[in-house]
Amino acid sequence: MPAATVAGGRYLVTGGLGFVGAHLVRHLLALGGEVTVFDNDQTPERAARVRPTLPAGAGSRLRFVAGDIRSPQDLQQALADGPFRSVFHLAAYSVIERAAQDPAGAIATNAIGTVNLLDALRRSPATVPDSVVIASTDKVYGEMEGNRYTEQSPLRGIGIYDAAKLAGDVMGQAFHQSFGIPTVVLRLCNVFGPDDRNCRYRLVPRSLSLLFDPTGPVPPELYFESIGHWRDYVYVDDVVAALLLAAVRPACRGEVFNIAGCVNLSTPEVLRRIVEAAASHERDHDPQRAERIMANGFRVVVRGQTPGVTTISRQHLDGTKFGEFTSFRPRFDFDQGLRATVRAARARHLDPAARPVLAGTTR
């Protein structure tokens, strides 16, 4: 995305201290934009995702607004910082297992929170930006029929997380049709990359936290019920590129797009590649640990199904439509992105004093 398309503009990023949000904020600042980060968790650890890695002089173009997407009053405070050229809506209740345990919280955040944002924009016509980019998920499609999802595939997401995201997704389209809010909905697959802190639930950071455990490498776990699962994966830099393209292309407004992954892999194959990438990187630091990583491999464990969690066995997005509108295609292949992710994970877990290794360094 050319710097000229961002320089001089102000942008609002909800959930701007989350995994994808922090990467997006850094990219916007690097391109010369002014950014307001709206996030309900601004602890020093989360804020450090952005502040220590800013380009020179960018701090003056960054503002934080603490607030909850479920609160219309908090959103009004954030919107008062505008007008914005674009709004990127990434705030979400993003852990599927937690959503199943707290359906009301998940729905209030993912569905009603999206409505709160769009309604706040509707009520303040002077604040309506050129685009509102809403991050959705491939899980809105539910179990796959055929060999891939297109934007015309039935929406069968019936899990609590899936349905809550689907409701926000659909309301984004409704506010465009009913009130002219320039929404763009992007349905993302599994995003991976440096600085993903969700080591409890997400496969890639969870596995790397075990492999780089300071007490010694622990074999990552493959849940028995996941052996036959297939998923798309996309590197976080490519997601940021898609978000920016969706924001600046007028033809995208009012549309829904799948963002295709760089690869579609079985879960066992993902774990195999994680183990090999971690061992390969570790050979330059601690050859004995590298040997143990390879000797351990990964282990299969039986885990009881989390109550309320629905499992989708196969997922694969067709990204043809977005490519036709924007010429987008993923730039990073899985192994290339995984190497950068491994490098950052090792630095975080085994060398915390090191400067963070973040997205963009693979270019």
Rank of each mutant, 00 (worst) to 15 (best):
G15H: 11
V170D: 10
D81R: 11
T137D: 04
A78W: 00
D39A: 01
A241I: 07
T150E: 06
R348K: 15
R197Y: 11
G9W: 00
V218W: 02
L118G: 08
L350D: 14
T267L: 14
G59P: 00
D351V: 09
G21E: 06
R10L: 01
R249N: 13
R314N: 12
I134W: 07
Y141G: 11
P55E: 12
W230V: 14
T310G: 12
P217S: 05
P2N: 14
E143R: 03
W230K: 15
P352F: 02
Y149Q: 06
T183H: 06
L211H: 08
V301M: 15
Q77M: 10
Q173W: 05
T150F: 02
F325R: 12
L31R: 06
V65W: 02
S136A: 09
Q101P: 01
A290N: 12
D195K: 12
K139I: 08
L166F: 05
L188C: 09
L186E: 05
L155P: 02
D68V: 00
F19G: 11
P268W: 04
S131N: 07
G146V: 05
G16P: 00
P83Q: 01
R329Q: 15
V239T: 07
V184T: 01
K321N: 07
H316G: 08
V239E: 03
F322V: 00
G57V: 05
P55N: 13
K139E: 13
L208Y: 00
A30Q: 12
Y233H: 11
Y223L: 14
L203N: 02
E45D: 13
Y223N: 11
P125Y: 03
L166V: 07
C252M: 06
A353H: 07
H176W: 07
N198A: 14
Y223S: 11
R46H: 10
F257Y: 15
S178Y: 11
A47E: 12
Y235Q: 10
G8E: 04
R348V: 14
L222Y: 01
C189L: 09
P194S: 03
G16Q: 00
S209V: 10
A108P: 03
R122W: 01
Y161I: 03
V204F: 08
S153P: 06
V25G: 08
Y201C: 08
I160P: 03
V95S: 06
P214V: 10
Q152Y: 13
G254Y: 02
C262V: 11
I312C: 01
Q77A: 15
D318Y: 09
A345H: 01
R85P: 10
F88L: 12
N147L: 13
A354P: 10
L62Y: 00
T5V: 14
P268F: 09
G172P: 05
P194R: 02
L12C: 01
P250V: 05
D196T: 02
P307N: 05
V191K: 11
G193D: 05
L155F: 00
N40M: 10
P217F: 01
L121E: 04
L75N: 04
A260M: 03
A277L: 09
L271D: 14
P194V: 01
G337S: 07
P125A: 09
F334T: 09
V342G: 10
Y11S: 00
S280H: 13
M294S: 13
Q77S: 14
I158C: 15
I312H: 01
E34L: 00
N110A: 05
P214F: 07
L245T: 07
G308F: 04
P219D: 08
V95C: 06
A247Q: 04
Y201F: 13
T114A: 14
I227A: 12
L29Y: 06
I274E: 13
